[in-house]
Write a protein that binds this DNA or RNA. Structure first.
Length: 274
DNA sequence: ACCCAGGGGCAAG
DNA sequence: CTTGCCCATGGG
């Protein structure tokens, strides 16, 4: 018995491998992971997903299969590099992630390579996450749990200087000082300001959360890769100027453009103007 | 050995 | 309001 989910304009492997989430594992043709506290197995067959029975609606929402991808792609910038990114990223979607999991994961991503962010995520899950029936990987540890873990034990997961940040941020969320769910009602600028109150969360990581967990598809996280790409388009500029440039030039789905550029730059190992 | 990684915080200009 | 420097750790 297998659940079926229609999934036009979607590439499961590409989406899971584009640096948005870090805990999914490919097993043959299947991808195994958890969405929140639910075990999910997904296999793509053309324009259809075969999923764990009962998770159809959850999967469709998580992978944002309702995003108007044709319209989003039609609005991409006309320059050669953006068009090359567009052509190489067919079916890549911006997912809807659980809020705390997204904020915490990107908090631990500062100055880390994608492979190591994954290792940290899996280690935190293994040591502090709740078991999920039917899944080898555990749920991302709740803020309440991480807030009570010693800095020493967090550092043992390879967190380095991020350990006290994660612990303190978890404490603020666990105490209710910051309500990540209630924040969803705020406008984007106010929401970003609130997220930046969390230790270890600055402009870039807040923008990751806005884009990947709050459906603010206009948000553009400017990391070292995107900075290189944008400088190739615009010339030398500060990070703030680069973000403003992308907002102005990429439009209401700037976050999508950013994600395609990020993935294309990493895979093609090329930059605009080369 | 050496360089870099999906940055943030803080002090100094 | 900007820039410079340090913060740990692992992979290429």
């Amino acid at each position: 018995m297998t659940g079926l989910v229609p999934a036009p304009d979607f590439d499961l492997g590409l989406t899971l491998g584009s640096g948005q989430v870090f805990h999914w594992t490919q097993v043959g043709r299947e991808w195994h992971g958890v969405i929140g506290a639910t075990a999910v197995r997904v296999e793509q067959r053309g324009d259809e997903l075969r999923v764990t029975p009962g998770t159809e609606a959850l999967v469709a929402r998580y992978f944002a299969l309702d995003h108007p991808l044709a319209a989003i792609r039609a609005g991409f910038p006309a320059d050669a590099y953006s068009q090359a990114a567009l052509a190489s990223c067919g079916g890549l979607r911006i997912m809807r992630q659980p809020r705390w999991e997204c904020v915490a994961t990107f908090l631990t991503s500062a100055m880390k390579q994608v492979a190591h962010i994954r290792a940290i995520s899996l280690e935190l899950r293994r040591k502090f996450g709740e078991p999920v029936a039917g899944s080898r990987v555990r749920a991302y540890p709740a803020a309440e749990r991480l807030a009570e873990v010693s800095e020493r034990r967090l550092r043992a997961c390879g967190l380095g200087f991020r350990a006290p940040h994660l612990r303190a941020a978890a404490g603020m969320v666990a105490s209710g000082e910051i309500d990540l769910e209630a924040l969803a009602g705020l406008g984007t600028a106010e929401l970003r300001t609130e997220l930046c109150r969390l230790p270890g969360v600055g402009r870039k990581i807040a923008n990751c959360a806005l884009l990947f967990a709050y459906e603010r598809l206009e948000a553009v996280p400017v990391d070292v890769w995107i900075a290189r790409v944008l400088r190739g388009m615009r010339g030398e500029a500060s990070l703030a100027e680069l973000e403003a440039y992308s907002a102005e030039r990429f439009g209401p789905y700037a976050g999508y453009v950013q994600q395609y550029l990020f993935h294309h730059a990493r895979v093609s190992k090329s930059l605009p103007g080369e």
